[in-house]
Amino acid sequence: MSTPLRTPMPSADQPRLNPDARLSVEQASYVYAPNPSQAPLFTLEALSFQAKPGEIVAILGPNASGKSTLLKLISGALEPLSGRVFLSGFATHALPPKIRAQRIALVQQESRLLFPSRAWEFVLQGRHAYNRRMHFESEEDVNIARNALAQVGATHLSDRWMDQISGGEKQRVILARALAQQPLLLLLDEPTLHLDIGAQVDLLDSLRHLAAVNRYTVIVVTHELNLVGEYADQVVLLQKGKCLRVGSPASVYQRELLEQVFQAPLTVEMTVAGRPRVTLLGKT
């Protein structure tokens, strides 16, 4: 904690708060402390940004920068210490579990199942939020689930057992379950961690397509610089609990900034399409 932090961006570059934005994070902060009398273990300082339907937002930063904490604030798992996180006008933390599950879907890296189930059963779990307490899935639920599998290109996995498919295939099924929730907000926590490169690109391509077609707001937590540069519409750059910059990839990917955040020498180039590309240099 000894390197001096860059001061946050001047307010002129911060997006003005649009009251009609789907997701609105307004000066939200959080503090982890084992008990009130001790010093906090980790602080996520107040930050703000907004996201629209059809947009992919990347929360970017090295480990322990607060990405997961921010994701938990957005998903409503944590209540912000100050400020608020609004989804279409409702504070995410205050939503009852079923309603929240209808609006926010979370895709995690792994899914540990105690007793194995088939892929279609797994995807059907996404419909739980729409049904009454004691129910059986309806024809509509089944169609939605089938559709979700098709959208991620996993229809052929439908009858396979979850513990017998590859990591990438499992990731797709998990995504399908999230889609079956028909959410407004799609959250992904380090989705590319266990995937090989081809699968990573496939996933991001799917996300871009799904965001456009189904008008999701997609929030991806990651530290993959080039994937973010290529696919994100907006980037929230975090370091050690502080938001350093919010903006388009082109505006956030400044060489000195990135080098300081990721502690590695690199170069930034622009592609023809206006997307930044980062090349890591060796420490010679």
Binding site: A77, P96, P97, A101, Q102, L106, Q108, L113, F115, H128
Partner: peptide, 25 residues
């Protein structure tokens, strides 16, 4: 217990996932 049967199906996946799928864990 039976009223929570479908919740239990989801609970087996882990409490965080279950919460995000709509279960009042």
């Amino acid at each position: 217990i039976y009223t929570t049967a479908s919740d239990l199906n989801l609970l087996l996946a882990g409490e965080r996932e279950a919460t995000h799928l709509g279960v009042d864990v």
